[in-house]
């Protein structure tokens, strides 16, 4: 399994990511995806905190992400600044990219499914993106990488 060159070995990372990592792994592998976004962001937070190599992704990175469900039931803002990630469940001014998703499962599939159907997701409007796509690509990369670390597979 390839890990992008700098990740710690799976077993170790799984141990390090501990509880949050296991929860995310379970969410990825299960049918239920309700808390996917918050689990993902929490696990990301832990990973940024504990894993120096993973943290490298956000050193010198500034980015404002706004995630919301189509019915506005979920609104989450993730802001990266000064090597840290802060997550709030409020709206956000001038995000770099806004990701609107139909439901959490669709968001999960969009980011992490082994055979991503990005075209299909966008077409069916399971996901709509507004803003700078490169920010989305970067986030998708980090999510995917985290997934590799917590589950051992893509």
């Amino acid at each position: 399994m390839k890990k992008g060159g700098y990740a710690v070995p799976n077993v170790l990372s799984r141990v390090l990511l501990g509880f949050q990592g296991r929860k995310l792994a379970r969410c990825i592998e299960s049918e239920l995806a309700e808390n996917f976004l918050s689990l993902l962001l929490k696990a990301m937070g832990v990973a940024f905190f504990l894993l120096r190599d993973f943290r490298k992704n956000i050193v010198d990175f500034e980015g404002k992400y706004f995630f919301k469900s189509r019915d506005n039931g979920i609104t989450v803002a993730a802001v990266f600044k000064d090597g840290e990630m802060t997550v709030k469940d409020t709206a956000l001014k001038d995000p770099d990219v806004t990701v609107t998703f139909k439901d959490a499962a669709k968001l999960r599939d969009f980011l992490l499914a082994p055979k991503q159907d990005i075209l299909g997701s966008m077409l069916r409007q399971d996901i709509t993106i507004n803003g700078n796509l490169n920010y989305l690509y970067k986030f998708a990369y980090m999510a995917k990488h985290l997934q590799l670390m917590v589950t051992g597979k893509a």
Binding site: K2, K3, G4, G5, Y6, K115, Q116, L133, N134, Y137, K138, A140, Y141, K144, H145, L148, A154
Partner: peptide, 26 residues
């Protein structure tokens, strides 16, 4: 940059994989 999300998986993806070393991915 559209391959950014795939940096970890492009070498092993099902359709037309393209090899990428860990170092180059980083």
């Amino acid at each position: 940059m559209t391959i950014w999300p795939e940096l970890d998986t492009i070498s092993t993806r099902e359709k037309n994989p393209i090899l990428l070393s860990d170092e180059d991915a980083a």
